[in-house]
Design a protein around this nucleic acid. Structure first.
Lengths: 143, 143
DNA sequence: CTTGCTGCAAACAGTTTGCAGAACT
DNA sequence: AGTTCTGCAAACTGTTTGCAGCAAG
């Protein structure tokens, strides 16, 4: 899985004539080792603690590249930071966000996906992507 | 409809001991007269053009109040600005966003709403709200 | 050697906040 | 009169950009 993603990025880099650099390797490694939904800041700190001297800007720029390469995806939750999640090819998931403890549970529902396609078609839209977040309290925070 | 919203805000203001001010009246009027999904900046400019001397900060502060009062709702699309939409009580709608021309079409789907409830229940979540956006190209931009 | 990449700091955009004066009640 | 609200400007936060030096090809 991780290897596959590294290859994805290598292919992308090659096709674009991008260079392979120490920083990109490190950022990719650490990104792949994170849980879902890392914010740029979280990733930056994680990188900083293990490898000195990688700047904010590089992390931002590199995550944009990962997004273009198709192995990461930007998500906007309600916390004023851009977060990135891993793209699992062929798989799509949505989020249940707990407003109590900010935990995030992922889910997938084929019926919803199908309905979305129907709705889009009805309005003449050609779907590129979608996102759905359900906000509420998780079982722990309800108590 | 508009009258009802004004009353909603008056009730809210009364219950909180908030004062009724010229600015809040103007901002409410103009907010209610806008199409859906106004950004703060758009609203600010609209207000500025018809009524001199209302500051940015007041618009921000007042929109937060409207949100607390339950007559507006924050939405985050992919353009780096917070937008506000009107809350139609009892009604919920989601968005089809055209990535070509940024137009937004609203829709509602009961089956999806029902499925969301089921999914939340399955994970022990108590739903507070949700949002769903489908991104794609509208019929005009597809050509 | 050429060109792309990085780190830094400065620039930016959107939003929030502190405060003195204005305006409700 | 007593507070709350406003406008302004300054502060903040997350993100982007310009540029000189560094490094990959």
């Amino acid at each position: 899985m991780i290897l596959k993603k590294k290859m994805m990025f290598n292919d992308f880099a090659a096709s674009r004539g991008l260079r392979s650099t120490r920083q990109r390797d490190i950022i990719l490694d650490i990104f792949l080792s994170t849980h879902q939904h890392v914010s740029v800041e979280e990733l930056y700190l994680k990188i900083k603690s293990s490898n000195q001297g990688i700047g904010h800007a590089t992390v931002y720029r590199t995550l944009k590249l990962f997004t273009e390469a198709g192995l990461a995806r930007e998500i906007l939750l309600h916390d004023g930071q851009t977060r990135y999640e891993h793209v699992m090819t062929g798989e799509h998931h949505d989020h249940l966000v707990c407003t109590g403890c900010n935990s995030i549970v992922e889910f997938e529902d084929e019926t919803i996906e199908k309905l979305q396609k129907e709705i889009a078609a009805r309005h003449g839209f050609q779907i590129k992507s979608h996102k759905m977040e359900i906000y509420g309290l998780c079982s722990i925070c309800r108590k």
